[in-house]
């Protein structure tokens, strides 16, 4: 794909995000779009946001479960950029502009040291991690009705929306990251449960994948970065006004309320 075509597609996604409307899947027009091209489009928009004054605070990992990978016909995860403007704290009213949001329970890793690839493994991740904290990721898609294929979601910043971090991080050496149970409630009702091992067998394996993937693209995870390691259950659609709470047992909890009136209700039936 020519550079100007990638720039056009990036501009379309950027405009859709700003206007809170969806566009048809990019893969309808470009069925053969490669993963590499899709990441190039994602990077073009990441640079645009940085030029506008936003700051990269970390990364999110997506497609970390077998069912999701099977659905999109891949056998590796994907990643997106996290910006300062996307970050909320537990108990916030989340007023981030969203189109068709869903929420996912996750564990966030906060790094104490840089993690340069390419030979990072799960042990190296745990050594470089300061703490883990429960996180709620609000995913969103600029692609109409979430009809995404792999290249669509990668180009669209891995369908990132915003994220909410708990406020009591746990030192990683004290945490059991495989059997730790997660209970997701929307408006007080249990909607999903899961455990850390849903993320590639161990969330640190996903973070190691990210470190190595970034290294192949010429960048590095940095000390202080936040990494959302991947969903431990299926994503759940949410509406404005919903109260969302994630309890991660001994690892603590995180909750938020989705602001009224910040959703274009028309596009999310």
């Amino acid at each position: 794909m020519a550079v100007f075509q990638m720039e056009d597609l990036a501009a379309e996604l950027f405009a859709a995000e700003r206007a809170l409307r969806t566009i048809p899947p990019l893969t309808e027009r470009y069925p053969d779009m490669s993963m590499e091209v899709a990441y190039q489009i994602q990077l073009l928009n990441a640079h645009k946001k940085q030029q506008a004054g936003d700051r990269v605070v970390g990364h999110k990992i997506g497609l970390t479960s077998k069912p999701m990978q099977r659905m999109l016909g891949v056998n590796e995860p994907d990643f997106g950029h996290l910006f300062a403007s996307m970050r909320y704290r537990s108990r916030d009213i989340v007023d981030f502009p969203l189109i068709q949001p869903k929420v996912e329970p996750e564990l966030a890793f906060i790094l104490a040291e840089d993690l340069p690839g390419p030979d990072v493994d799960a042990d190296a991740v745990l050594r470089a991690t300061r703490s883990v904290v429960p996180a709620l990721e609000v995913i969103d898609s600029r692609i109409a009705d979430w009809k995404i294929r792999l290249a669509d979601t990668i180009a669209d910043n891995a369908s990132a929306g915003c994220f909410v971090l708990g406020d009591e991080p746990t030192p990683v050496r004290d945490a059991n990251l495989t059997t730790c149970g997660a209970v997701l409630k929307v408006n007080g009702e249990v909607v999903e449960t899961g455990a850390g091992a849903a993320v590639m067998g161990h969330p640190a394996i996903a973070v190691a994948w990210l470190a190595n993937k970034l290294s192949s693209l010429g960048t590095t995870l940095r000390a202080g970065d936040v990494v959302l390691s991947g969903a431990v259950s299926a994503a759940v659609p949410v509406r404005s006004g919903d109260h969302v709470a994630l309890s991660f047992g001994r690892l603590g909890r995180v909750e938020f309320t989705l602001a009224k009136a910040n959703l274009s209700e028309s596009s999310w039936g």
């Binding site: 077998k66 495989t178 059997t179 730790c180 149970g181 997660a182 209970v183 449960t193 899961g194 455990a195 850390g196 091992a197 849903a198 067998g201 431990v232 259950s233 047992g249």
Partner: peptide, 16 residues
């Protein structure tokens, strides 16, 4: 209580 069910070493299901 978190629960992880594996088949032949591969995670199949998780829950609480």
């Amino acid at each position: 209580v978190g629960v992880v069910m594996r088949r032949n070493g591969e995670v199949e299901q998780t829950g609480a």
